[in-house]
Design a protein around this nucleic acid. Sequence first.
DNA 1: TTGAAAGCGCTAACAC
DNA 2: GTGTTAGCGCTTTCAA
Lengths: 367, 367
Amino acid sequence: MTTQDDRATVGAMHTVTMSDVAERAGVSSATVSRVLNGNYPVAQATRDVVNRAIEDLGYTANAHARALASSATHSVGIIVNDLVDPFFSYIVRGVEQEASATGRLCIVAASQGDVDREIGLIDRMISQRTDAVIVVGGGYEDPRARRRMAERARTLAGIGSTLVLCGRPSVGEQAPTKIVGYDNEGGAFAVTQHLIAQGHRRILYLGGPIGLSTSVARLAGFRRAMQSHGYDVPPELVHQGAFGRRFGHATMGEILDGNPEITAVFAANDLVAAGALDAMTARGVRVPEDISLVGYDDIPQSSELTPKLTTVHVPLEDMGRESVRLALSRTDDAFGRHADGEIIVGTRLVERESVAPPRATPWTPGR
Amino acid sequence: MTTQDDRATVGAMHTVTMSDVAERAGVSSATVSRVLNGNYPVAQATRDVVNRAIEDLGYTANAHARALASSATHSVGIIVNDLVDPFFSYIVRGVEQEASATGRLCIVAASQGDVDREIGLIDRMISQRTDAVIVVGGGYEDPRARRRMAERARTLAGIGSTLVLCGRPSVGEQAPTKIVGYDNEGGAFAVTQHLIAQGHRRILYLGGPIGLSTSVARLAGFRRAMQSHGYDVPPELVHQGAFGRRFGHATMGEILDGNPEITAVFAANDLVAAGALDAMTARGVRVPEDISLVGYDDIPQSSELTPKLTTVHVPLEDMGRESVRLALSRTDDAFGRHADGEIIVGTRLVERESVAPPRATPWTPGR
DNA sequence: TTGAAAGCGCTAACAC
DNA sequence: GTGTTAGCGCTTTCAA
């Protein structure tokens, strides 16, 4: 009832629906639906009338009704630790770009590194029936979490969606996930080799949460490189803890004050490296003259440090884009049993200015 | 039909719905709904049976059906220029936090600074019936864009949602928007005063897209401060263009090479300041000894530059949080006519290390 | 405390 | 080309 007003500028009290448009255009709502979706032939004349009505009424389709009727949501979900950490925000940017390019909206949520929260968020995305849910970043070796994750992967597969692990290890062969990853161990091995080739022997490994898959792999690559040359990795030269700048700064400071006699630092990521660099600079330690420094990830800021950081390039934004592409490419077998689809993106050493051969005598606090 | 399997581990071919749960639990779907929402009394026994069934079947409610039936989406939308720019990502973080804290999911999209795209995105959010749509960052003085924006504000108000302009000027008194802003002009005036108080006269204004409201206001504050002291602002000392680091670096470089005889630089934001700092450092210009430098926004990175940047602090994350709070607090009058709700967050000068009195003779390229 | 039934706004056969 | 008519999966009166 009620449609004899033309007060186009006043907010309607009753949300305008498709049948309002239909009525005004003098057609059925099916026709309105057809001109909206443009997937069925509609006479140009009718099309015009309908569009006119849509315009007049200021109609905007209800995405939920649409999703319900067509079971197509045109959305993807992404879960990250922290939205301001460049590692994550570049990946989110890639995801948003690709989602947007394929007409999808992007639901993003931050887990703050909390496993339970993460699972809860996945469940909310399942509720949303997103075309994909992308979980980003390393995880902990926790059987219970893996199992719960695997369950979600199955649920998602069951509703025709996909769980993609972006920069996170598999949660089991059985789980129907897709993976977009890169070789952390290999990259770490490569930078370490680089340091060793320059003549470094006493290298400090700094940063990365203990037990986080990403940390674990990077540390493993570091160790393997050292050991393959017969060099020791004394416990006092391995300091883990976190992936942030603050950690790098604080820990590097303490270590420096303890006269470690190191000639190089392998920071677990660029943020840690930036923090460490600060600590060194503040103490008059010159990089790379006194101590060499390498990072990991190659976030754009790294080439803006002084000196520019030598690091391992990880194509963050691409990973985001690939994650949604992979998820949307439906190639799994009929029973959805077989976990298919895995992309390993390339990584490479980026040599800039923070590495040089070691000094004849290691830097020490006093002098 | 069909429910005599217990293969809990295999993805169901038919999405499990509420009536599946109801059937399994031997109750009506209304009851299932009631235990799910916990807003009606349900016998503990029934509750248990239902929960058991939910567990067994791995049921996850369909958010779209829910939204359609209850017209409550529990979501907010946010539109920013760029997800990796700290200015935006901190605001997004604030929005996500508050949304999450109130049980809402966050739909984020990037406009890439394109006005039409931005409008299109707002329309998509309207389709989603989000509880609020938050548009972040300066806008251009474009009557057509303003009008379209105002229309969207009305549409949103009409469906019980809210358009909030975060860090963007009003689109007209008539439009039912809410605003979370800060005083750009005043902040710019204040930093400029600070520079002047140190003795600077020839100050370069650097960066900010021409015509963007934020830029316009900052430049206006700069001008007003200079003029209030009777100082000139010669055109060759105003270089606008963009808000990025690259712009700051490139432009500062060129200017320096042209022997501008300046003693200080007012960068339109911290990113521009960081770029300018690089350019100066690369040319052996010492900050603040040779040239002083100030920025705007106080993104966390600014206190990690060398020297630490003197800048204007803007509570980015708070603004994000306040945006959703304000939107969710329904306080408008019955007819939704009156645009209500505006928060102006406080801003303050943060003195760090990048400002000093000018040298007796300005720095010049030769020396 | 629980069930029946009427929608929510749209899509997708199926007819004409 | 266009209209009719079932649903999509849930919430919410209204009765019982």
